[in-house]
Structure formats: C-alpha cells, structure tokens
C-alpha cells in the first residue's frame, strides 16, 4: 500500500509536466485550430538552452532567459510553418511543416549538444523530504507549483487584461474578433509564443528530474498530446486531471510490469479515447454545422 501511495505521489509530478505541455497544445488549438507537432522539441530546446545557461548563472536567473528563448522559438514555428499553411487553409500543410521543423530542431540540438543524455544540475537539495513515511523530492514540489503557477498566470491574464480577453475572443470566433479591431494574426503568433514558452519552462522544470538530451522531447510531446486528448482540447481542468491519470498510470506500470512498457498505457489511452470519445473525457462534443 505504501509503495502504491509512493507511486501515486511520483506520478503527480510527472503528470503535472504532461499537463503543462498539453496546456501548450490547447493554447494554439484555441486560437488557430492548429497544433505544433514539435511541442516536445520546444520542451527539449528549452531544457538544452537552460542547461547551457546554467553553466554560467544561477538556475533562477536562467528561467526568464529560457522563457524568452521559448517565445522566440514559438514565433519562428508560427511564421515558418503555420502562417503560410493557414493562409492556404491546408491542414496537411501545417501538420507536415510542424513535423519537419520538429525534426530539424532535434537534429540541430544533436549537433550542438551531442547525442548523449546528460544530467541537469538540480537547483534544490536532492535529498527527499519525508511526509508520513512517503518520500518527496523538493524538485517534484517545484514542478507541481511551477506548472500550476503558469496555468494560473495565463488564466488571470485571460480574465483580467483586455489583451487576454482579445485572445479568448479570437478562440471563440476569429472573424468576429477581427471586427472588434483585434489583429487575430498577431493573436495566433502570440499563442504560439506562449505555447512554446510554456513548453520551454516545462523543459527546465523536468530536466533536473530526468536526463536531458536531444531525444527527450519526442515521446514527452506525444504523451502530452494524449493528455490533451484525454482532457479535451478545450478543457482547462481536463489537462490537469488527464496529466495526473497518465502520470500515475505510468509510474505504476513501470513498477508493476516493466519500465520498458511505461510509455504504453498513455498511448493506449490515447488510441482508446480517440476511438470512443474523440472530444475527450472532459471536453464538450459539438455538433458540426454543415
């Protein structure tokens, strides 16, 4: 029982990371109906840039720089991959371009930082804290707090500032938002910047807990997509719950079956949810008007 509780606890931290990346998928999907297939690579780049910077400065100072880098990377993806495809209304186009940008980023990272996974120095003590006989890493607490903080910050921005409301308006109805004088093209670019920024932040949060390397992004991005689907692409609470489900499923599978299979439950869940209830367990299904 104690082991199980411990597994759940470790699953929570992992799940919040998935939730945070999935949140990034939601941001771009809301404004433009597109997804960045390179979301995992945005995370990886954030972690790698963070790793380089951390050699020269304090972890906390590095974070804002990584955020700026993430935002710029998001803008690049949107301008190079998504915008031209949106203009020609080509779904095939943006799927292919974001995939190809993803493999380019991965390859560049391999050439800049090498093929090997390295450890990311932890900014917090690595000795676990004890709560009721359960062990928790300080870094895990930081992950949960950081992920919640980002989601909360975006939520407050959307609710309180007129620019945030403009973003919500664009997700509601892009044409009508244009009629309000909102430059919806800029809003979409912004949502990509924000989305990649979130991913880069997730990268520096998760890096001290796992190994960091050019290949770390691909599977994380895919599993986060599973979370976004389980939670529903339009449900804020959904990604947190979905992330937790997946995180816990993964740590328990890893322990009770084999670590080799730990990625399987998430992917199976993705296939099952899409086969049975594509709007997600928490999303609302909409009747498509013809």
């Amino acid at each position: 029982m104690e082991i199980f509780a411990q597994l759940i606890l470790s699953g929570i931290a992992l799940g919040m990371i998935y939730g945070l990346i999935a949140f990034g998928y939601q941001l771009t999907f809301a404004t433009s109906g597109t997804l960045n297939f390179g979301q995992g690579e945005a995370l990886m780049l954030g972690a790698m840039v963070g790793l380089t910077l951390v050699g020269h400065m304090n972890y906390w100072l590095m974070i804002p720089l990584v955020l700026v880098f993430g935002a710029l990377q998001g803008v690049l993806v949107e301008r190079l991959g998504v915008l031209p495809a949106l203009k020609t209304k080509s779904e095939f186009g943006w799927i292919m371009t974001t995939i190809s940008l993803a493999i380019i980023f991965k390859n560049v990272a391999e050439n800049v930082w090498g093929h090997d996974d390295v450890t990311f120095p932890s900014p917090l003590p690595t000795a676990p804290l004890q709560f009721f006989g359960l062990r928790v890493l300080p870094m895990e607490i930081l992950v949960v707090a950081g992920a919640l903080a980002v989601m909360l910050a975006v939520e407050i921005f959307n609710r309180k500032s007129i620019y945030g409301k403009a973003v919500v308006a664009t997700s509601n109805d892009r044409d009508a938002a244009g009629l309000m004088g909102i430059n919806t093209g800029m809003v979409i670019t912004f949502s990509y910047a924000l989305s990649s920024m979130t991913a880069a932040f997730a990268g520096v949060l998760v890096a001290p807990l796992t190994l960091t390397g050019a290949t770390m992004g691909a599977v994380l991005g895919l599993k986060a997509f599973a979370v976004a689907i389980i939670g529903g692409l339009n449900s804020g609470m959904g990604v947190i719950v979905g992330g937790l489900i997946l995180g816990i499923a993964e740590t328990t599978t890893g322990y009770y079956i084999s670590t080799g299979y730990k990625d399987v439950p998430g992917l199976l869940l993705l296939l099952l949810v899409l086969a049975i209830k594509p709007a997600g367990m928490f999303g609302k299904s909409v009747i498509k008007k013809v």
Binding site: L80, A102, I104, E110
Partner: peptide, 16 residues
C-alpha cells in the same frame, strides 16, 4: 549528422 535537418528542409520546400 545533418541529414535530418536536410530531410526537414526538403519537406518544407516541397510543401511550399
């Protein structure tokens, strides 16, 4: 070492 970058660039080129 750069072949994936080249594949990626080729896809971008073909798509556009």
């Amino acid at each position: 070492d750069h072949r994936l970058t080249i594949f990626g660039a080729m896809i971008l080129f073909v798509v556009y």
